[in-house]
Design a protein around this nucleic acid. Structure first.
Ligand code: SF4
Length: 476
RNA sequence: GGCGGC
DNA sequence: GCCGCCAACATA
């Protein structure tokens, strides 16, 4: 894969594969326009995110089927049909790169890509399916005639029990170690004999999916290894400044270091607040910075939230002290406010580690004059809310948000805001400020990394090689 | 902010 | 005036 400047553009070199579902076995040998590089990836990210939401919502197989093709149609289309395959492949590899760095990311990517593949495979023609099977060159033997005759009765029994009676004698069966097709075994959809499951051609999907999954899984680990060893060492000097510049000037803390997640330092707090805090917390944060003070309700709401975000006790104390002492003096801070913060962290008295407030709690609170806690969607005047939403960058979706507010669906309004700001759907809906935060971080993480890749390509596009070129080496 | 202690 | 102790609860 080679990234080229915005002006040039070469058509997709025709590949031998005629089917529409690639298996991503090897890195793409094609050229990518720089702006597509990121756009494609984000579109695919939307698909995966949608799948992930669907899965975690416990959607059934058929609902998922619907969802997947809906998502795919919506996001992965392209004016130029020949470009669709390009987009598919490029976006897959970019996201593979993005998600190779930590166990969590790998798991997430793997599971959602696999689900995507499963559903797409099912939609392929029989010939295409067979072609895909061949690409994986599955090591399974087809059942030969003699054997077929000997187990035919068993096979047709099973077939009948799942109301897919054997049509012709020429149906092909494969003998597969039964542990490799857990789905089929669990659903009692295959005949099992001597440790082998007899998988019919039309059931082969789950077999291929398993294969797909394990290939991708290995590939992810491999990519990660190359990323950490090659890049970390060889490109450290060149990449680090870029990454740092980006993280301080643009989106957030240096995610690329794969530090510990779920821990935030005082230094990153402003950027993170700006990119990932829900409106209620943003507002408190802003007011704190402005007045160097918050009333009790606000301290509780924001303080617990920050703890949930991963701000450690020492940092929390330092953070609050820095603001408060400007108004009331350091010594008075220690005397009147510090205890309560330690208490919130479970370090005083009963030593309970309190959970941050939920949306319900916040929405049903009743801020008085001078208070800044509560839920803006619920407690702000229309005018103030509009202004606040604009500042968040909601854009034209603001009408829709205000609509929800008028119907008193505050959390839905918040969810819409999230979607507008991040350009991703949030099927789960927002019901906790910290959920808003984590969800947002997940997206930011990918965006930052993509931005880094793109920026890097920009910065060194005159050089012989660039990040995307490395991708070829890594991924093979 | 509430409750409580001196 | 000095001080201690409490509340919360999503969530895969
Ligand atoms: S809905 Fe929940 S998260 Fe969103 S602003 Fe209101 S309280 Fe904060």
């Amino acid at each position: 894969m080679e990234v080229i400047g915005p002006k040039k553009k070469t058509p997709f070199p025709s590949e031998s594969v005629s089917n529409t579902l690639p298996v991503y076995r090897s890195a793409p040998q094609l050229e990518v326009r720089l702006e597509d590089f990121e756009l494609y990836a984000i579109d695919r990210l939307r698909v995966l995110k949608g799948i992930s939401d669907g899965l975690s919502r416990g959607k059934k197989y058929q609902e998922m089927e619907r969802l997947v093709s809906e998502l795919w149609r919506k996001n992965m289309g392209h004016q130029n049909p020949s470009e669709m395959m390009n987009k598919d492949i490029i976006s897959h590899f970019v996201l593979r790169l993005v998600h190779c760095r930590t166990e969590d990311l790998r798991k997430w990517f793997l599971s959602n890509e696999t689900t995507l593949f499963r559903h797409r495979f099912k939609l392929e023609t029989l010939d295409a399916q067979r072609a895909i099977m061949a690409e994986f060159d599955l090591p399974y033997k087809a059942v030969n005639n003699a054997e077929f005759v000997s187990v035919k009765d068993n096979l047709s029994n099973v077939a009948r029990s799942i109301s897919q009676p054997l049509h012709s004698a020429e149906t092909i069966f494969f003998k597969v170690p039964f542990e490799e097709v857990p789905e089929l075994v669990a659903g009692r959809r295959v005949f099992i004999h001597k440790g082998y499951a007899y998988v019919a051609m039309n059931q082969v999907g789950s077999l291929v999916v398993t294969q797909f999954r394990s290939h991708l899984s290995k590939a992810l680990v491999l990519t990660n290894r190359k990323w950490t060893s090659t890049i970390r060492e060889q490109e450290k000097d060149r990449l680090t400044p870029i990454v740092e510049a980006l993280s301080t000037s643009y989106l957030g803390p240096d995610y690329s270091q794969s530090k510990e997640f779920s821990e935030i330092s005082i230094k990153d707090i402003d950027q993170v607040a700006n990119s990932s805090f829900p409106l209620c917390m943003r507002h408190l944060f802003e007011k704190l910075r402005e007045d160097h003070h918050l009333k009790h309700g606000g301290r509780m709401q924001l303080g617990l939230f920050l703890k949930g975000v991963g701000l450690r006790l020492e940092d929390a104390l330092a953070f609050w002290k820095a603001e408060f002492s400007r108004k009331v003096g350091a010594e008075r801070f220690d005397k009147e406010y510090a205890y309560s913060i330690r208490h919130n962290y479970g370090k005083e008295g009963k030593r309970t580690d309190y959970t941050p407030y939920s949306c319900q709690k916040i929405i049903s609170s009743t801020p008085g004059v001078g208070d800044h806690h509560g839920c803006p969607y619920r407690h702000f005047s229309e005018e103030n809310l509009r202004a606040a939403l604009c500042k968040m960058g909601v854009g034209d979706k603001i009408q829709e948000v205000m609509g929800k507010v008028r119907d008193r669906h505050y959390q839905l309004a918040c969810t819409l805001t999230f979607e507008a700001v991040h350009g991703t759907s949030c099927d789960a809906g927002i019901n906790h400020p910290n959920q808003y935060f984590t969800e947002s971080q997940k997206i930011m993480q990918s965006k930052v990394f993509l931005a880094v890749l793109v920026q890097d390509n920009n910065a060194i596009s005159t050089h012989v090689d660039n990040i995307a070129n490395y991708a070829v080496m890594w991924l093979l």
